[in-house]
Design a binder for these strands. Sequence first.
DNA 1: GTCGTGGATTAGACGTGTCTAATGAATAAG
DNA 2: CTTATTCATTAGACACGTCTAATCCACGAC
Lengths: 232, 232
Amino acid sequence: MMLSDAMEDYLKAIYRLQSETGTPVSTSAIAEEVEKTAPTVTSMVQNLAERGLVEREKYKGVELTPEGETVALEVVRHHRLLEAYLTEQLDYSWVDVHEEADTLEHHISEEFEQRVAEMLGDPDVDPHGDPIPGADLRPLDGDETTPLSDHDAGDRVVVSRVRDRDEAELAYLDDAGIRPGTVVDVVNVAPFGMVTVRIDGDEQSLPEAVARTIRVRPARADRTPTEGVSDA
Amino acid sequence: MMLSDAMEDYLKAIYRLQSETGTPVSTSAIAEEVEKTAPTVTSMVQNLAERGLVEREKYKGVELTPEGETVALEVVRHHRLLEAYLTEQLDYSWVDVHEEADTLEHHISEEFEQRVAEMLGDPDVDPHGDPIPGADLRPLDGDETTPLSDHDAGDRVVVSRVRDRDEAELAYLDDAGIRPGTVVDVVNVAPFGMVTVRIDGDEQSLPEAVARTIRVRPARADRTPTEGVSDA
DNA sequence: GTCGTGGATTAGACGTGTCTAATGAATAAG
DNA sequence: CTTATTCATTAGACACGTCTAATCCACGAC
């Protein structure tokens, strides 16, 4: 199937939103993600539905079909492989690979994808810690990580992934020494929206908004973090 | 100036045709080069003229302005750097880099271009022997090479460049051991459209149509090839 | 010089992706 | 249960790049 760049972008957006929330995705959420107006999204979504890439219930929301998910996974694979490649082979900083990958992801051939993957030894994660879908495009496993902001004082965690889309935020984290693999001790979760942590013996405070975008896993297997949503 | 991929393709096409012939370029020539219909070309050319990228005389032909040439040179630089990069760093064969480069040339950033150029040590030519415009995008020097088919029996020449656009032809040349740098002795130019050459002691015959796409320079400075067009 | 032919342009249409303005549905508040 | 608000959709327009069909210009043959 021949898809436009725009369509791939919408599918990627829906994929991301759907992964985050686990529920059908609203028109306005997509609109925000792709930076287009709501009517534009409606008409694109209709188009995607006609092609069998999404399932849509009017006035409710939209979900990817398996075919749609496969396309999204392909785009995500391209994106993350490119981020890894640009960082490792072309000396890009992890702070600014995102933009370049966002364009190129739509324009590389199957062959390019394969060669890059091979060159990198089929990596599992990109420089921000995000998992790279395999060449088979099987859906990714559920996310085991939790937001740093959901943890309590005393927890020791390992940074698993950080959000790749905001350059300023990435630059901030880079400066703070926070990247995938960094061990973080939660010192204090203050009520005023700051989280104090110790990294490498060094204490520092992060805005809660930032802490929320840092996904972590327990540093020791016997410690489980508090879940943000107490579930049903 | 924000140009579409399509516009860049037209400018590149005009650049190539203009370099080959040295004269204004016809609508039909462009149409063939970009594989679009003549009316499509007319309307695109009007558009380019409005933007000051080409000079146009209705019913006559079109030429690049200096600005248009600069854009074309940028695209060509991207294309040829990419061909060099894909060949050297990603193990592509020179036979099939062209297609990948043709797409990517429109989508790499200035930063990408710089890093690739640096990684390769600012190469002067791509894998097919075509000159790579410098970062300053100064017009390329005039072409000193001559078609192999313009030479006579007894001439010893060095292959300078081969046409990069026809994969079948490239595969053929690759198989024949003909690439930039190959030393070729012209054995015989038969009237029936075949050119016999000796390469590495090995004699073989090439169709004249192919020999015409192989650009060569004299192997010794004191020997000048016969010019195809006896000029005015 | 006239005319015919071939190439170029204009006319008019279409698909895609986008927008703003107007309308319609779902839902939360009372 | 009604209504107000919010969010989604429909209506209609536009830019862009493309096409086919119709018309127009230039130039070589006579």
